[in-house]
Structure formats: C-alpha cells, structure tokens
Design a protein around this nucleic acid. Structure first.
Length: 669
RNA sequence: GCUGACGUAGCUCAAUUGGCAGAGCACCUGAUUUGUAAUCAGGCGGUUGCGAGUUCGAUUCUCGCCGUCAGCUCCA
C-alpha cells in the first residue's frame, strides 16, 4: 500500500522552546517557535504563495517547506522564478529517477543523486549496465511518479533506525557511518522510495514535469578510481517546457559548433592513426588561423618588452631531474630515449630551457626584468580516455613566457601582464573573469612568502578595479596563480591565460642576480601563457565563432566568382588586385553554375564572395556577398577599389564580425 | 587507465534470420555559360579498423588488439 497521506510534521528533535524571528522581504517580522515548519509560515502569508512555493531561503540558506526551522533571519519564499529553486527541483528529480529505477529494477543499489549544473544524476550499483531502452523506460516511469503526486516526506531519525532502513544498501550505510553524531540524520520518502538525504526537496513529485534522461556513464564510487564503478544516469529537469526545449536547443547549438566536426568540414586539421592519438595535423587552412594568431601575439609581446627565444624539443632528462618534473610527473611524460648512454626526453614544459638561458650569463639587477617568450611545443602523455579533438592532446604548442625579476618588480610585472592579457583577449572578443588561487596544503616555501605574494596579486587586481574571485587552496604547490576564464559566444567557460608565481624553480636551479649591494640575490620567476596552447585555443575559437572566423583569421577571406567565361579575365583582375592588397583570395572559375559555386563558398564559411558578371566587368565593380548576412541578402555592388579598401581595413583593425550570429545553412550542407 | 557504445569508399550513411557490399556528396571525364546556397550524363573509388576463431560461407557470431565517442578519474 502506497502511503499518499499528506505530510505529517515530524517532531523536531532540537529546541522548540525558544522563539525565532523571521524577517520577510517587506521588512515585517514574525515570531515563530523553533521547529515550526516553513510551510506553516508560508501558508500564513497566503494560500496562493503556498501553492507557488518551491522552497524557502532562511538566512541565506535554501531549505524545503517540511524541514523544521532551527534559526531565524531573512525569510524568503522561493518560487519557480528563483534561480535557487532549480537545484531543488533537480535534486527531487534525481530521487524520482531512483524511484523509477527501483520500481523497474528492485535490486539496484543506490549511491548518490545530486543536482548538478543543468541537471542531475543518480548512481546505481547494478549487475547489468543500463541500456538506452532502459533509459526511456525509466523516463516513462518518472513521468508516472510525477502523475502520482507523492509528497516528499521528511523524517528525522536516529542512527539505528537509519541503519535498519538501509540494511540492503551498503553504499548508503557507508555514507551513514561517516555522519557525525551531532548531525541530523534525515530521510526523504516519495511514494515507494526512501533515501538518506539532507534535502531540500520540492513539495511533491508533480512539480517535476519537464525532464529528460540524457545518457548513462560509469562513475567511480565516491569519485575514487580504486573503488567500484557504478552506473550513473544523467538527466535534466526544468520548471517549464520552454526552458527544457531551450536547454536541448543549447546542446544542439554546442554540437553544431563542435570543433571536431567543423575542423573536418572546414579542412582545418586532422589526426591520423599512423601519427598517433592526440597529435594534431594542421592543414593549410588551419595553419593560417594559427599563424595569424602567432603573428599577432609575437608583435604584441615584442611591443610589451619580451625577448623571443627557442629551446630544443628534446633534452637530457637530467634537466628534468633538476627541475623536479621527473619526480613529480614521470607518469605524464613521454618515455626516455637513449643516446650514447644518456637518457633524453621530449620536454613537457619550456621553463627549464628558459632558465638555462637565464643562467648562460651572470645577471645584474640592471638586466632585470628579463622576459623570455617562446611558442614552445611540449609533449605530455595524457591517458587515452581523456583525449578530445584539439582540446586535450599529447603534443601542443604553448605561447609560453617566463619573467625573471627582482621581488620589488613583481608588482609592475603583474600589472603589465594584466594589460597584455586584456589586449590579447579583446582581440578575439572574449569576455573573461579572474580567479586568484592561493596556498594549497602541500605548498612549498614559507607561509609568509606565500601570503606576501598573494597580497601582491590581490593588490594589483584591486588597484586596477579588476573583479576577481578567490580559489582558496587552488594554487600550485610552488606558487599562487591568477587564472583567467574565457566566456565564449554561447556562454561556456574556457581555461584562458594563467599567470603563476614560482618559488620552486629559482631555488632548485639556484637562480641568481647580483644586486646593487654587489651580493647575489634570488630572482622571482613568473610563468605565464596567454592562449595556453595553440591547439586548445584554436579548437575553442572554432567553437566560439562557430567556424565563421573574423576576417583577419579567416583561412580564405575573399572568393571571386565570374558568372561566365566571358568575364573571367575581369574576375581574375579583381582577385589579383585583392591579392596585391594582401588579402587571401581565390578565384573560382570552374564550369559550374553560379549557385553551385556560391553554395560551396558558403559551406566553407568564406566571409566575402565577389561576384563578377557583365555589368560589373563593364563598370569595374563587384557584387559583394557576405557570409554573415545569411541566406537572404541583396548583393551589394561596389567598385573594386572600395572592396579592397574595406576588406583591408577590416583585416587591419582585426574587426570582429558579429560572432554567434552565424546561422546554420538551411539546406545544402 | 576504467565502464559502455561505436568502427563499412575522402565525407555522411545503407545492407532483410550469416548468402554476389550499396547510395548521396566529394573526385575525374564530357556536355552545360549560368545573376546570388547544389545543372545533366558517364566514370573512378572497398582486404567492411587490424589479427585470430566458429562456419560450406562472416560487414553480420566469438575472442584479442588498435582507434573513435560519452562519462569517470586525471590535466605540472
């Protein structure tokens, strides 16, 4: 028999003997006894509000309507309109998934089922992995659970009671054993399913209507790869059908932008089994994009006082013994090759090489700061399961640089780096956020040095009015860092530039400079990358621009198309003129229909097409077609000189074509 | 590396219970001379990822390896 009775308020276990003060959003105050259920408070405000309520927020903390109030403070009712409600909905959806799975697979053991960004998951221990058919059966069953409108009933129980209830669920017992004696043990029941859970939940299962189970995956219990793997089911849940549809559409959009698909369609790069997984072959069209970025960046950093250097791809592994990489990251390095009795390795980082250049001379404080930059190709062994297109590879080129300076110069150097980062990212149209990562537990060096460095970073950021968040304990063991996160055209975050202070390598290599006092001092070393890796950055750019690069980066900037053979020479002259102006231009005089040739140029997302017919040939003009204007557009007739001027200007200013406005071709490709 | 799915022409995909491996696009040839997103005809193209096994017969079933995809774990 399914218990469908309404919620019975469990007796609160803690102090119901004192009054709590709740402050409502309108400023009014209410006194209620501790242990009162929020639903009673909400009901007293209004019946309509109770119907709309998803949960409440008390003193900043979200809790559901059936968890006894234990403290007072700001009291806000959360409805479907509040962003914080989504996590509650999704957590409840996870329970409903478990409810559905348990109905169809009574022997499935339950793990955890939290809300995550964009959805939820639930882990199960089962003998047979789930199939796609299982998934749709579970989804149907979840809808039934929603229709059956079970209340989420909260009970607070003692340990013995909880152990009895989850006697058949070893994973839950393990979790239970970890709960401290002072913690409230609560369980939530929706219909036939009961789960050890802190909450909060929506009032009943009928609130969870717009769901979709996305896929299954294996996941390690407690995220520990030495523990058993569980079957995880991912799903998403929203308050309205529109939101669900919009989310699914966002996924489609991301798929449409996938750099692996576009990389093939636009002939930018490939990988070849014979070369090896995670090793990128840059095709001519992709190489143009990369080269433009490198040229731009090289010009930029030279202007910012950097010196270009080159270091070998393969070095004696002694270098990595000194640097400590061999001890700490041996598993992630390519294996050693023996040459005349000495072991050599492909470099996993450029820093040791740059340090050796620093040490090639005795350095004076007058030489500092020294800024060595290199597009340095490094090789790291990444486990096969993590490789992903251009975004996660085994060989990549970092736009790496190391700044060697005196402690007094760190301030200004950081400041200069922030300018550099800003100039670089603006060129690609990326907004960004900044994160300051501080001292981790396994940190090297004196805490005072760390605190000092962290304060320097924070001070510079604050002086510039740059907003930032702090990732406490997120620094590398050898120094604190600034991480820049890029936000792409569809709102996704990407790892961007990083600036890192290093207390370790100067020590290990014994770096020195002679100070004004004529004694040796240890310089400070800064590592920094702007784009990180050319591979990852270009992969990200492909997705950011959906393959429609701004003109300065476009592999082919202009395609000239004569309508008939009669005007071929006129078209060739247009192409020659554009080429002379430094544009990347091609002439498509194939014996194909005009429509065919336009379709192909559009498929390649060629920014501009100059069509030349009899009228244009006679007048010295072209009919210009622009990729970004989409399918319906009137050709814009202009003199050849104006075309060239306009495009050259657009390249020179590195103008950003409206990224994200690139529409999918309605037919054809 | 782990779990699961997948691997057929350059690309996207077919191939009824195991029975002659196919289409569209691309490419080549010819015709077509076109006014803004795919002209017509013909042709070329395959050790069905690799290797073994079962079978009269394997793209199809089994095993191993390689690779790809999703997720987990990892990313100095």
């Amino acid at each position: 028999m399914i218990d469908r009775s309404p919620v019975i308020a469990p007796q609160p276990q803690v102090g119901s003997d004192h009054e709590l003060t709740l402050t409502l959003p309108d400023g009014s105050e209410r006194q209620v006894p501790a242990g009162t259920l929020p639903r009673d408070v909400v009901a007293s405000i209004g019946a309509g509000l109770l119907r709309a309520a998803v949960a409440v927020q008390v003193d900043g903390e979200v809790q559901d309507l059936v968890t006894p109030l234990r403290r007072g403070g700001e009291f806000r009712v959360l409805t479907e309109k509040d962003a914080a409600s989504l996590a509650v909905l999704r957590h409840s959806a996870a329970h409903m998934l478990a409810t559905a799975v348990r109905r169809l697979r009574p022997r499935a053991k339950i793990g955890f089922g939290p809300a995550i960004e964009d959805g939820f998951y639930y882990d199960f221990e089962v003998e047979q992995p789930f199939t796609p058919e299982d998934l749709s059966a579970f989804e149907d069953e979840m809808r039934k659970v929603a229709q059956e409108k079970y209340s989420f009933v909260r009970e607070e129980v003692n340990r013995a009671d909880a152990e009895r209830r989850f006697a058949d669920d070893p994973l839950k017992l393990e979790r239970l054993a970890e709960l401290g004696d002072d913690e409230v043990i609560s369980v939530y029941t929706d219909g036939p399913f009961v789960d050890l859970c802190r909450g909060p939940h929506v009032p009943d299962t009928s609130r969870v209507k717009h769901i979709k189970l996305m896929h299954t995956a294996a996941a390690y219990w407690r995220g520990d790869e030495h523990r058993q793997q569980l079957e995880r089911i991912y799903g998403t849940a929203w308050f309205s059908k529109d939101e669900l549809d919009a989310y699914l559409h966002r996924l489609e959009e991301a798929k449409r932008r996938d750099h692996r698909t576009l990389g093939k369609e636009l002939d930018l790069f490939s990988v070849d089994q014979r070369v090896g997984p995670g090793l990128i072959l840059w095709h001519p069209r992709g190489a143009i994009v990369r080269n433009e970025i490198e040229t731009f960046e090289r010009e930029l950093i030279l202007r910012h006082g950097y010196d270009l250097v080159y270091t070998p791809h393969i070095t004696s592994e002694k270098l990595f013994e000194i640097s400590g990489h061999l001890v700490n990251f041996r598993e992630n390095m390519f294996g050693a090759m023996e040459v005349e009795g000495a072991a050599y390795r492909p470099k996993p980082m450029n820093c040791p090489g740059h340090i050796c250049i620093y040490q090639a001379h005795q350095r004076s404080y007058r030489d500092l700061p020294l800024r060595f930059a290199e597009f340095g190709t490094v090789y790291r062994y990444e486990r096969s399961g993590v490789l992903h297109g251009m975004l996660r590879v085994r060989g990549f080129t970092q736009d790496d640089a190391h700044v060697f300076c005196t402690p007094e110069q760190v301030d200004t150097e950081i400041e200069r780096l922030l300018d550099l980062v800003d100039e670089m990212l603006r060129a690609f149209g990326y907004p960004y956020t900044v994160e300051l990562s501080t001292r981790p537990d396994n940190a090297l060096g004196a805490p005072e040095v760390w605190t000092d460095a962290e304060q320097t970073l924070a001070r510079v950021l604050e002086r510039r009015g740059q907003a930032y968040t702090i990732d406490a304990g997120g620094g590398a063991f050898y120094g604190p860092k600034l991480d820049f996160k890029l936000i792409d055209a569809i709102g996704r975050k990407w790892q961007g530039p990083t600036v890192q202070l290093d207390f370790n390598l100067p020590e290990r290599f014994g770096l020195e400079y002679i100070g004004a006092d004529n004694t040796p001092h240890r310089p400070v070393m800064l590592h920094r990358v702007l784009v990180g890796s050319m591979e990852r950055f270009v992969g990200g750019l492909i997705e950011h621009y959906a393959g429609a690069f701004p003109l300065w980066l476009a592999p082919e900037q202009l395609r000239v198309i004569p309508i008939t053979d009669e005007v071929r020479d006129a078209a060739a002259a247009v192409a020659a003129r554009a080429k002379e102006a430094g544009l990347r231009v091609s002439l498509d005089d194939r014996a194909q229909t005009l429509n065919y040739r336009i379709a192909e140029a559009e498929r390649l997302k060629t920014p501009y097409m100059a069509i030349v017919g009899k009228r244009e040939a006679a007048a010295g003009t072209v009919a210009l077609r622009e990729h970004r204007l989409g399918r319906e557009q009137k050709p814009h007739v202009m003199p050849v000189e104006e075309l060239v001027r306009r495009l050259a200007e657009e390249v020179k200013t590195r103008a950003l074509t409206a990224s994200g406005t690139d529409q999918p071709a309605a037919g054809g490709d």
